[in-house]
Amino acid sequence: MIESILSLTFLAQVLRMFTPYYLGASAANFSERGGVINIAIEGFMIISAFSYAFFTITFGNPFVSLLLTIIVSLLFSLLYALLTIKLKINQIVTGVGFNLLMAGTAKFLIMFFYQSSSNTPNFQPLPGLPFISDIPVIGKAAGDYIIVFGFILIFISQFVLFRTRFGLRLRSVGENPEAAETLGVGVRVYKLYGVLVCGVLSSLGGIWLASNQGSFSDGMIAGRGYIAIAAMIIGKWKPVNIFFACLMFAFFEGLEITLQITGSFLPSQIVQMLPYVITVLVLIGFIGKTRPPAADGVPY
């Protein structure tokens, strides 16, 4: 078993699994830094994965489909912003509603378009970066546009949040909106920006999952949107810490897959449970105190 974990194949597996978690967690982070909780990351991933599959099957061009999918996700984000920012409706409840809406819509549409209760037909995945994709074993992971973007995103998030005026204002809106407004920051506009960035990033997570599988199937997101939120909390709303949290969750998922293949003393359900148990332990306080942005979830 140790040999199978210490292999390049396993590393590539972890790199791949890391991507949707990090995209989802960064998405949630941008939203929460602006003070808007979005527990519908799961739903955004579902609807994006479905839309991407639908557009690719219908139009064929993966990059056009990617663009169209992001637009779909942005439209849902605007609706989310309308309800939570403009109408100030409770964000948790809205998130629950969005999850039901997006999961339900995807289920309905696969049945309607493809007469299947479970999945769409297969399609060609996103092509990889030239040259790098041809490297054996890790090429498929290292040459994937979205995976590469996922890694660059660590630096982008860190830079944008902590080294730009936009980041400073976004954080000020999430920490103390009254003070931000006094200083002339358009609080609601920045909240909207946070929600929109969240929509784009979570959409990429869903797109990657669909492209990686080469189809959309019901239940394929499998709680990754929630794990992403957990990773954000464990990562204490900091891009670099979130990176390590996602890496840990990706490691467990890779382990679970490896264990299913090789068989072991640890049952796969127990491994499946570990990320969530760890999150609860973190919340209990074994890994120091976590502190969300002060005005997180408070409508303004």
Binding site: L83, G97, F98, L100, L101, A103, G104, T105, K107, F108
Partner: peptide, 15 residues
């Protein structure tokens, strides 16, 4: 599955 959409729309529109 249209009813799943209906149910979700009920909750969002009541909100």
């Amino acid at each position: 599955e249209i009813m799943l959409v209906f149910q979700a729309l009920v909750i969002l529109s009541i909100l």
